[in-house]
């Protein structure tokens, strides 16, 4: 029995050792960064302009024209909701200070419906936060997953990605996607799918009224609160979409009135400015600037960020003086 246990332990140690070595090599060789968390390793100490958000945050903000003048950072992660925007801001609040412009994208799926933990995709997307947040800020925390994500990541990802990393075929997933143009996809079909995906969590009471997600609303208020405490300037913004997407959303007869009345109410209550670019004619038919019906590509994001900063920030004296003086 002793011999058996000793040999078994030796075997386990050997396997774990090799897994550890492979994992270190994988972490260095993999450039795909599918969950887009590597950027948090190089987060600027004093951010001057930043944004949060879901894929609408990742893809629609491109600070390339401002990177040499300002410290910019994109906190957006795919399918991220306000409750995790809030958690990220809470954790990284020391990186923002007086005068920091904080864009908070408000998407059509941000404020209503079920909690995200009820969706079947939740566990898959929740894994990424183990690499960038402390355990007290992670929903449904699981210590095994924590160890796995931080020390044995190569065991938790798709084996094809590990192979690709080792044969040098991995490429940055978001960068690759960002280059695309909406003409490569069937925009009408994509709008239909995106709309179904975005509104699928919506819930209604017995009178047919859309139910507000209190967790998300509180998270938004919390973000605005942190920004105010630190002297930062929160700005709510809805990003541009193609008209096919807007038309699909319109099929839900009450959605726009429900959404805009709620956003305007929060904006008024918290004294936070809200800008809606969803229907901006400069974008709604500009297919060259989109990856698909609801995400801007690199070029589109560059133009949108320029417009946003020039129209909202640099044009207004109250902001212009603040940005660049943040501490």
């Amino acid at each position: 029995m002793k011999k058996f246990i000793a040999k078994l332990l030796l075997f386990i140690l050997l396997v774990l050792g090799i897994v550890g070595i492979i994992n270190v090599a994988y972490m260095q060789m993999d450039v795909s960064d599918k969950d887009d968390t590597k950027k948090f390793a190089t987060i600027p100490a004093h951010i001057q302009i930043c944004n949060f958000g879901s894929s609408h945050g990742i893809y629609d903000f491109n600070y390339v024209d401002f990177d040499d003048k300002y410290e910019c950072f994109n906190f957006g992660l795919p399918s991220q909701r306000l409750s995790y925007d809030f958690r990220l801001l809470k954790n990284y609040q020391n990186h923002i200070g007086k005068g920091t412009i904080v864009f908070i994208p408000i998407s059509y799926f941000s404020l209503f419906g079920k909690d995200e933990i009820e969706s079947k995709e939740f566990l898959a997307k929740n894994k990424r936060y183990y690499r960038i947040l402390p355990k007290e800020l992670i929903k449904e925390y699981d210590i095994v997953l924590d160890v796995g994500m931080n020390y044995f990541l190569s065991l938790l990802v798709n084996p094809n990605d590990v192979i690709k990393a080792f044969i040098g075929q991995s490429s940055n997933f978001h960068e690759e996607r960002w280059k695309k143009k909406s003409m490569e996809v069937n925009v009408a079909e994509d709008a239909k799918n995106a709309c179904a995906r975005h509104l699928k969590l919506d819930k209604f009471d017995e009178n047919g009224n859309r139910l507000v997600n209190q967790e998300e609303i509180e998270a938004l208020r919390g973000m605005i609160g942190i920004c105010h405490e630190r002297g930062a300037i929160p700005i709510l913004v809805t990003v541009p979409f193609l008209e096919e997407y807007l038309m699909e959303i319109r099929k839900d007869a009450t959605f726009y009135s429900d959404f805009y009345s709620l956003v305007n109410k929060i904006s008024k209550e918290t004294g936070t400015e809200y800008y809606d670019y969803a229907f901006d004619k400069r974008f709604t038919t500009h297919y060259d600037w989109f990856i698909n019906s609801d995400h801007l590509n690199r070029e589109g994001a560059k133009n949108f960020t320029n417009i946003l900063l020039h129209e909202i920030v640099f044009k207004q004296e109250k902001y212009k003086d603040e940005v660049g003086n943040c501490s």
């Binding site: 050997l14 897994v19 065991l155 990802v157 798709n158 590990v162």
Partner: peptide, 19 residues
Amino acid sequence: RWSLYICLALLVLFFSQKG
């Protein structure tokens, strides 16, 4: 023998399907 066992264990660990 041990190399083979370790390889098999690694195959199972790395190539077991996730999700």
